[in-house]
Design a protein around this nucleic acid. Structure first.
Lengths: 292, 292
DNA sequence: CCCGACCGATACCCTCACGGTATGAATCAG
DNA sequence: CTGATTCATACCGTGAGGGTATCGGTCGGG
């Protein structure tokens, strides 16, 4: 009588996100009438109104908001169950590491060689995803461990190990008025065209939309944007960089599902922590920055 | 092609727990043949063998073990989505608090009166569940916040607030050889009949099986068991209690789903912390124990 | 060593839940 | 007032999933 099933939940989530039955149906690859019925059925089953609908407007009730949030988690968990089992059944199990481009602070190669020396080590699959997608990939079980950037990425629900604390630098077009300064403040960048990352609303940043740091660097080089990023980018770009002295430092962390008992994962975390400690001790010399 | 659905997952979990298709089918209220087919279909879908089966033996493969663990989480999350939405849709939303009998250290009445004074307060539903079931109730969204005992209850996946640290006492039958001692050690109790709580395997404890502390107290009074429990029980029993000086102290905590943004919940946690601090400050006088 | 009990797999059928098409009904713009 | 838009209703067809009957393989007892 009352147990929600995953199909209904997927349907509801589509409607709740699109706030439009026609578009939601299209996204789901079905026609609109069965979708309307399915939502009604969910409402009957839960005994609750989830969507306030007129022919002109579709809006979520408070209960609908709750179901959207919780439903997403449940669908992620469902996908995770399938993906984890699938990967566990591979004849040669591997540890899947996910990161976004240029986010490993150059640590990954060394981490991998250190890791491979560990007796618990198994082969490693490296997955490169889009900006801000690591947490989702991890939640859906398509990876075992992720490189994450606090406070940008959402760490809730994961166990974490902090690797490095990175100051932020402004990446500037050559000849920019701030080039050559020993440091700048956030306020100095107020009128600069800061890029808009995926997921940001237009009022959060004034500049052009970017999807990856390659695009961003291109735009900076053309003088169309100014980037504020972890200091490690200074190693991968020839553009001038200036420390932002009052920007909140970024923490590079590893995250993995809570309560994991995988020895291979534990070894990887150990290796990463060790490499990060070495790097921190050597004062980030490669990045051209002295120690704090 | 590849997405698991909740029905299939429920079927698999039943088989994985029963390790017997017939019993699992009975538990699910269906016949055995469709269950066999469903499991095969899951295996095909994931491209993985989950269950090693002969006519005499059913065993999980490593992938099956993974799917059982992850599947449980997913089904909990699914139930949680439904239950939370259902409760959020009630005309008068309430905060559901779950605890097991005698586990609130007598704090609850005072917490409730303190809480009701808060402007953010909403009505409170108190749910009393069986031993060790709080985490499950919370995970399935049937409650918003739980009283938990670290290290007995599994806190992973929850945000927590520690309330009290409780030393443990041994509850003894009247006239027992240890009655009157100022303190005992764990080793002194080695040969005593310690009760077996639900979920314990027979080798972990020698004594009779118990399901709640009422039963346990009865057995102790009859001289059939010796209980080791948080010191607060001494308030609810007339049986003699002796501190166990080297037992790991128990932490009474509140736990709730991560990243909750409910103001009503926050107010409850605030009230509980405040009451616990007052109680701690007054040296647990009511429990007849001096401060550490 | 054979027979019977047990248990999962297979074969076959049937039902109803879910999806599709056509259309109604409500609301808003112009 | 009219047409466009969009969600709901009516009705139908199909196939996924469940039931019954039975097979086949394995182990234990006599």
């Amino acid at each position: 009588m009352n147990q929600l099933d995953s199909r209904e939940l997927r349907y509801f989530v589509a409607v709740a996100e699109e706030l439009h039955f026609g578009r939601a149906a299209e996204r789901l690859g079905i026609a609109q009438p069965p979708l309307s019925r399915a939502i009604r059925q969910v409402e009957r089953r839960l005994g609750v109104t989830l969507v306030e609908r007129t022919t002109r407007r579709v809006a979520l009730t408070p209960a609908g908001e709750v179901l959207l949030r919780e439903g997403h988690k449940a669908l992620d968990a469902l996908a995770a169950a399938g993906n984890r089992a699938r990967r566990a059944g591979r004849s040669s199990p591997a540890l899947a590491v996910v990161l976004k481009p240029n986010c490993d602070a150059g640590l990954l190669p060394e981490i991998l060689t250190t890791y491979r020396a560990d007796p618990e080590a198994i082969p490693v699959d490296v997955l490169v995803c889009g900006i801000g997608e690591q947490a989702g990939v991890l939640r859906q079980g398509r990876a075992d461990v992720a490189f994450l950037h606090h406070p940008y990425d959402d760490l809730s629900g994961f166990d974490t190990e902090d690797l490095l604390t990175l100051r932020q630098v402004a990446v500037l077009p050559p000849g920019h008025r701030l080039v050559g300064r020993a440091g700048v403040r956030v306020a100095d960048l107020r009128d600069e065209p800061l890029p808009r990352w995926p997921g940001m609303t237009p009022d959060q940043a004034s500049g052009p939309e970017v999807r990856d740091s390659g695009q961003l660097m291109q735009l900076v080089a053309l003088g169309l944007a100014v980037a504020v990023m972890p200091e490690t980018v200074s190693r991968t770009t020839t553009l001038p960089c200036v420390p932002v002295v009052d920007a909140e430092p970024i923490t590079l962390s590893l995250g993995w599902p809570e309560r994991s008992r995988s020895l291979a994962l534990a070894a990887f975390v150990r290796a990463a922590a060790e490499v990060a400690a070495r790097r921190q001790a050597s004062g980030l010399a490669v990045a051209g920055q002295g120690p704090t």
